[in-house]
Computed example of a mutant assay.
Amino acid sequence: MDILLFFQSIRNDILTVIFTLFTICTEQVAVVLIAAIMYWCIDKKCGQRILFAVTGSITINSTLKNLFKAPRPIGSNNLESLRTETATGYSFPSGHTQTATTVWTAIIEYFRKWWVTLLGIIMILGAGISRLYLGVHWPQDVAAGWVIGILVSIVLVKLFDYVYENKSYYILLLTLILFAVVVYFFIGEELVKSFALYTGFVLGYIVEDKFINFSTEESKKRANIFTNNKSKPKLSVKILRFIVGIITLGIIYVAAKSLVVLLLANASEEVLLIADYIRYTIVVFWGIAGAPFLFERFGLN
């Protein structure tokens, strides 16, 4: 509490804006945009690594929250918490911190450039400190988010690389079964949604890799028939990919949510959880496999 009160004592308008931005950069919309731009437009494999690591990390985070059921500091005496609308569920470990750490650890490990490493460290530290500054997490929540985020990112990235190189899809399906067992014992709304994200990625990745296999590079034949080089598509193609992908993803999301509201307005909590699981699985599956299919059909590959 002394640490949280210290951060509260140094608050000012500028610091509040800075740390609020750090928090926003780890929330759902921002992570989706970062992953989508990387996966669809810049570097497909890096995007796949990020998505696999972050969907797995979110599922693990939700499991741990449901296991420990730690209360947040929000509402404690003398503490004024900010941006509490983003502080849902239990406290330990910090989801924002773990997500930022997972994403940026995967990016740092992939590119291995000093400026990417520096930027990643700033984003990781900033995300964690922002949760203390806003008064929505305890210090141990943030510390655990950093440690778990790094470990989970390293392990899942290595696992993905093995699957990627050996086409060992069965490993992904085994992890899916393992997480399903965990969800069964620690069931909760956030955990079900997190597991749906992971399910959507695993199924989408297998379908895309086997049947679509789009690329963020294009082949250009040179005069010498024995050589072939890779070059990046034009910026206009990348922009069109992003527009097609994000618009169709938004349509799928809104349509799926509308159907749930329309058809299951008076359904039981269990039925709504199943509907949410299916809905989020479909949305992520579309982003991983459906949008790339459209890229192929529209000649944007």
Rank of each mutant, 00 (worst) to 15 (best):
T97I: 05
K193Q: 13
F201A: 02
Y169K: 02
I148Q: 09
Y170S: 10
T59Y: 07
H137E: 06
L173A: 04
G145N: 05
Y164C: 10
K158P: 06
V116M: 11
G120L: 07
A180P: 01
P93G: 13
T105I: 12
T88M: 14
S153I: 01
T102Y: 00
E109S: 12
Q98C: 12
E109L: 14
A144M: 11
G89S: 12
N61I: 04
T86F: 12
K69T: 09
F160Q: 10
I108P: 00
K69D: 07
S94V: 14
Y169L: 06
V152Y: 07
L173I: 09
N66P: 06
T97R: 02
L125R: 00
V163E: 00
I60K: 01
L119S: 14
N66A: 04
E190D: 15
V152K: 02
T63Y: 15
A180K: 07
L173R: 02
Y184F: 14
S153D: 03
M123Y: 03
V147A: 15
V182H: 02
Y90Q: 06
L173M: 09
V147F: 14
G126Y: 08
F186R: 01
E80C: 12
L159V: 14
V136M: 10
L79G: 08
G128T: 00
T84N: 06
Y198M: 06
I108G: 03
V136A: 09
E80M: 14
L118K: 09
S62E: 15
L79Y: 10
S194P: 07
I124R: 02
T63Q: 06
I124S: 06
L119M: 14
G128F: 01
A180G: 11
L64K: 05
W114C: 06
T63S: 15
S91P: 05
F179C: 03
Y184K: 11
I148C: 11
R83S: 12
H96Q: 05
L119W: 11
T102E: 01
L178Y: 05
R131T: 00
T102I: 04
L176H: 02
G89V: 11
F185E: 11
F68Y: 15
A196N: 06
V163A: 03
I177S: 03
D141Y: 10
S76A: 13
F111M: 03
E80L: 15
T117G: 04
T63H: 07
G149C: 06
R112N: 14
Y90I: 04
I171K: 00
L118G: 09
Y164V: 07
Y133H: 02
T117V: 15
T59P: 07
L174W: 03
L132A: 04
E109Y: 08
D141H: 10
G75L: 12
F179E: 00
E109M: 12
F92Q: 12
G75Q: 12
A100R: 05
E190L: 14
G126C: 09
V103Y: 07
M123I: 13
V157I: 15
S153T: 01
L197Q: 13
T199H: 09
T88W: 05
L82D: 09
L64G: 04
R72I: 09
T88R: 15
L197N: 15
I154K: 13
L156H: 01
K193G: 08
K158Y: 10
V136Y: 08
L173G: 03
G200T: 01
S62G: 10
H137L: 09
N166S: 05
L67S: 03
G128K: 00
T59I: 09
F160I: 10
I154M: 13
N78W: 02
E85S: 14
